[in-house]
Amino acid sequence: MATRADITSGLAEILEEVAGVSPDDVAEEKSFTDDLDVDSLSMVEVVVAAEEKFGVKIPDNEVQNLKTVGDAVSYIEANH
């Protein structure tokens, strides 16, 4: 069972690969768009990679609710 810290570091790897975000900048309270400069299309790539990595389904209409890294961690924690 992955912990929140595991999920966060997994997301950090994805964010680095997809959007060039430095892993040091990734923390639960960070906003994808405002703090990490992840645009709407990169967000889709992050979601697709996270689905693969964590074995979850993140439907299109759920993506807009994932504002912060913590939102994504919580969703993955609850659904994987």
């Binding site: 709407s40 299309l41 967000m43 889709v44 790539e45 979601v47 697709v48 299109d60 993506v63």
Partner: peptide, 12 residues
């Protein structure tokens, strides 16, 4: 257009 939905469909 729902750009995110189209982008996801097209790239995956």
């Amino acid at each position: 257009q729902d750009g995110q939905a189209v982008f996801r469909w097209a790239t995956t």
